[in-house]
Amino acid sequence: MIGPSYLLLGPETGEKEQRLKEIRNELRKQIGSDPELHRFYPFETENGEIFAALDNNSLFAEYRLVLLSQAESMSASLTTSIAQYLAHPSTSATLVILSSDTSVSAKIMKAVPKENTKVFYELFDNQKTDWVRNFFRRFGLTITSDAIDLLLDLIENNTQELRTVCTQLAMFWQTGEKKVAIGEDDVEAYIHHSRQEDAFTLFPEIAAGSFKQSIDTLHSILGSGDSGAPILLVSGLLWQFRRLLSIQESIASGKSEYEAFSSASVLGKASSLRNPKDKSTYHTALATYSLEQCRDIITVLSDADISSKEAGNDLVELVLEQMLYQIIIKKGKKTQGIPFASFLQRKGL
């Protein structure tokens, strides 16, 4: 039986997303239909929007699943309001509070049942190495320690992306019918082969506000036939815009651009800019998107993350085209039913 509230904490996003998916699936079985989904961030619910979603019965769905992300940045007043809501929650909604920190306000920790609270910790370095080695062993493959180290350096420290990239690498390796151990050079060759176009080559075009070029790059990425490309694309762009937001917040607090680049972070992890090309890209992005627009864009990307995972193969392209339109043309403002005639014609929709 799904409860009225959950608290999912910690930096390990892959397992956290898996638990969130389980909650949604359990809700679907419990109510017999998909719950109406709402996602909020503390900075966009200052006027009580989250409580309207929690308390108001929908005309289109009998139950609502409401997500509050980045709960570590909640204001004192929002924390108090959330705690008051949790004392008398709606019977037709479930609130899931998410944070990359391992704890939040004591008021919230006390209000959410202990059995519905879970902390998802990052894997330790030795655990990550064993995880990767055992993953390839299940495919009948071996991988050298140097290759594992390089692989872990190239991807984010969460099991969701780790699993996706390792699966792709295993398939890539088996295609070549190679029976020897995967080495460091092989990992590097795979990354070059499979990631000629990705979130990190798309971001400079988005930073420059080039919609046409961004759409072309998107089609190149999706044209690779890689089923995991949409997930990696959205998560990569989320990472880039969170990094951009940290830079904008530093500049807003009075730091110089140089200082902001040096102190950049993503979800609390240091991610300073050292490469001149990266600095140029982010300098352009600062001129293209304001701090408030960047916050809106992060919301757009979070919504697209959910939608792209749920969309079928015929619709994921449309979801991502709409995402780019909302980011580049609308600067993060929400839009409804954006028509893409070329897409609709190609798909016969």
Rank of each mutant, 00 (worst) to 15 (best):
E49F: 11
L152A: 11
S99A: 13
L152R: 09
S69H: 15
R195N: 10
M171C: 08
K128F: 06
K309A: 10
Q84I: 07
G348E: 03
M171T: 11
A53N: 05
R28D: 00
E44M: 09
D149L: 05
L320I: 04
D153M: 10
K114F: 07
F172S: 01
I97S: 02
D101H: 13
E12N: 03
K107N: 00
K212V: 15
L324T: 09
R163H: 08
G348I: 02
S77N: 15
I329M: 06
D296G: 06
I31H: 04
Y85L: 07
I108P: 03
A285D: 03
H88F: 12
Q213Y: 12
D101E: 15
E49C: 08
I97D: 04
N134G: 01
F43E: 14
I231D: 03
S290R: 08
S265W: 11
L162N: 03
K330L: 09
Q345G: 07
T164N: 13
L301T: 05
R28T: 12
E321F: 02
A304F: 10
L9R: 04
N313V: 12
R274M: 11
F340L: 10
S342I: 13
P339R: 15
P35E: 03
L169T: 03
K118A: 09
Q345L: 04
Y63M: 06
N158A: 10
Y63C: 01
E188H: 14
A61V: 00
L65T: 04
T129F: 06
I148N: 00
T144N: 03
N47G: 04
K29L: 15
K128W: 10
A170G: 01
T144L: 06
D278N: 12
I298P: 01
V119Q: 14
F203C: 07
A53F: 09
L7N: 02
A93N: 09
A264I: 07
Y63N: 04
I221C: 07
P11H: 12
I82D: 01
T299H: 11
L301N: 02
S194N: 10
I328C: 05
L267F: 12
T91G: 13
K29R: 10
G140C: 00
Y121I: 07
S290V: 06
E188V: 12
V234G: 08
D149T: 15
Q322P: 00
S290Y: 02
